[in-house]
Design a binder for these strands. Structure first.
Lengths: 154, 154
DNA sequence: TTCAAAATGAAGCCTTGGCTACAGATTGCC
DNA sequence: GGCAATCTGTAGCCAAGGCTTCATTTTGAA
């Protein structure tokens, strides 16, 4: 797992010779996958706090569709990595770093859903697919999405 | 890991009540992730056989950017799951199921790259992002992509 | 106030997908 | 034919992210 500023990773650096290029692309995808769970948890925690005032492990687990023990273990990783804090039996809270990540993740998610919808994907399918797609959309692609949305009225 | 026919998963079934919907979406994304590695390997093996006549573990590992032992272990899972066969020191071959999956995966990859490019994403970035995105594009979204491509000339 | 239900957290297990290190097979060069 | 380099495969380690089970804490209802 990366630390905060890499949780939404950068785009490809320079040119690489042929075969290495492919290996590099797979490497980028693996990195993005490693941050996906962090991003999902942080965004959900932010949602729960915003809409309900608190984020409890049981609620997080239910919303994600995992066992509560799984959520607690992942939350402990968030704490270890500086995205969240929690006091026993008192819910989970985001650090500044966590809130900042949540904000970026939510904006990216919305934009992906918007663009999918504009392309003719039904709203509910767009939401579902975006849940996976969003973690692999690089900043460059995100910028292209934003430009496309602005060009064609949303 | 799913077996063959689910390796490209289906879209969401019926309507689900509010909170369960979100849990279900995350569940779909987790399933798609579980099939992503299988899809990458199968497509790469098919490429290597088509272009070079054989797919050796070392070549697979180099192209994916992982250690050869990692590739061998994953290949053994492909064999276990009925996507590939191999004889010691004689390279890897796809089963009928494996070839069929490779074909679907390649078509999907190309379409994702095409659509990203049409949206204004630079070619190389589109290729890199598609490596991750493709695994989460449901059949419904894929159909919408194809319709979009056909509507606006590629 | 008491007590049962629900939430929490810890512990231990599994699979996946990385890695390194080492052993054995194959190949090709001399 | 022999030997070194390369390729292959096995074994063992690790972390992530699932799971179940169980003990403990908190909470809320009678």
């Amino acid at each position: 797992m990366d630390d905060g500023d890499d949780a939404i990773r950068q785009s490809a650096p320079a040119e690489l010779p042929g075969e290495d290029t492919q290996a590099h692309r797979f490497g980028l995808a693996r990195e993005a996958q490693a941050t996906a769970v962090t991003e999902d948890y942080v965004e959900l925690i932010d949602d729960l706090i915003t809409t309900g005032g608190e984020a409890r492990p049981t609620d997080i687990a239910r919303r994600l569709g995992v066992a509560h023990a799984t959520a607690i273990k992942t939350i402990s990783r968030l704490k270890r990595d500086g995205f969240a804090v929690s006091r026993p039996y008192r819910g989970v809270f985001l650090t500044e770093q966590g809130r900042e990540l949540a904000c970026r993740v939510r904006a990216r998610h919305r934009l992906v859903v918007e663009v999918l919808t504009m392309l003719g994907v039904p709203e509910d399918v767009a939401e579902a697919d975006a849940e996976g797609i969003e973690h692999f959309v690089s900043p460059v692609t995100l910028a292209a999405f934003a430009a496309y949305r602005d060009r064609h009225g949303a």
